Simulated assay, not measured.
Amino acid sequence: MNIETAIKSIHQMGITTKTVINIMYTSRFVEDAVSSVLKPYDLTSQQYNVLRILRGQNGNPANLCTIQERMIDKSSNTTRLVDKLIQKDWAKRSICKTNRRKVEIVITETGLELLKELDPLIEKNNENLVSNLSEEQMEAFNSILDSIRTT
C-alpha cells in the first residue's frame, strides 16, 4: 500500500515530503510490531534497548552516559528506564569503587534469560516485517537510511 493510501491523503505531496512522511509512518509501523512482541513481557522497546545495550557490555558495567549515547530513542529518560529494569530485577546498579560519583549498571542473570527468550521472537518478528524484501534490497535500503543520517 502506498503512503498516500495508508494515511488517506487527498493532497498531492512533493517527493521530499512524501519520503519523510513515509519514513516516519513506516517507523511507527515497525515500532508497533516490536511493541506487540514485548508487551506480554511488560517491557517497552526503550527498556528492551537498554537491556540489549547492557548485554552488549559482556559483563562490564555501563554508566548512564554510555547507555544514553547508544539508545535508539535519544529522548528517553535513561535514569527512569534503568530504575524500571532494576525494579523488575533485569538490571542492577552499584556505585563505582574507584569513583563514588560514578554509577555502574549491569544486566542481571534474569535480564539475560529474558533476552535469550526474546531473541528468537524478535528475530521472527523482524523476518516477518521484511519478508517481502530480498537481501539485496535490504542492503540497499540500509545504505539509503545510513546516507540520510550522514547529511
Score class of each variant (00 low, 15 high):
Val37Arg: 04
Val37Pro: 02
Val37Glu: 07
Val37Leu: 00
Leu38Gly: 03
Leu38Gln: 03
Lys39Asp: 12
Tyr41Pro: 01
Tyr41Lys: 05
Leu43Glu: 03
Ser45Tyr: 10
Gln47Val: 02
Asn49Ile: 09
Val50Ser: 09
Arg52Lys: 13
Leu54Val: 02
Leu54His: 02
Gly56Cys: 08
Gly56Leu: 09
Gly56Ala: 11
Asn58Phe: 12
Asn60Cys: 10
Asn60Trp: 13
Asn63Ala: 05
Cys65Phe: 14
Cys65Pro: 09
Gln68Arg: 13
Arg70Gln: 14
Met71Tyr: 12
Asp73Gly: 15
Ser76Trp: 10
Ser76His: 10
Ser76Glu: 12
Asn77Phe: 14
Thr78Pro: 02
Arg80His: 09
Arg80Leu: 14
Leu81Lys: 01
Lys84His: 06
Leu85Cys: 07
Ile86Cys: 11
Gln87Thr: 08
Lys88Ile: 10
Trp90Val: 13
Trp90His: 15
Ala91Tyr: 06
Lys92Phe: 15
Arg93Tyr: 13
Arg93Thr: 14
Arg93Val: 15
Ser94Val: 04
Ser94Lys: 14
Cys96Gly: 07
Cys96Phe: 02
Asn99Gly: 06
Asn99Phe: 09
Arg101Val: 11
Arg101Asn: 04
Lys102Ala: 05
Glu104Met: 08
Glu109Gly: 15
Thr110Arg: 14
Gly111Gln: 07
Gly111Phe: 06
Leu112Lys: 15
Glu113His: 15
Glu113Arg: 14
Leu114Tyr: 04
Leu115His: 06
Leu115Tyr: 02
Glu117Thr: 05
Leu118Phe: 01
Leu118Thr: 03
Leu121Pro: 00
Asn125Ile: 10
Asn126Val: 12
Asn126Phe: 04
Asn126Leu: 12
Asn126Lys: 05
Glu127Met: 11
Val130Tyr: 10
Leu133Phe: 02
Leu133Glu: 07
Ser134Ala: 01
Glu139Arg: 03
Asn142Thr: 09
Ser143Val: 09
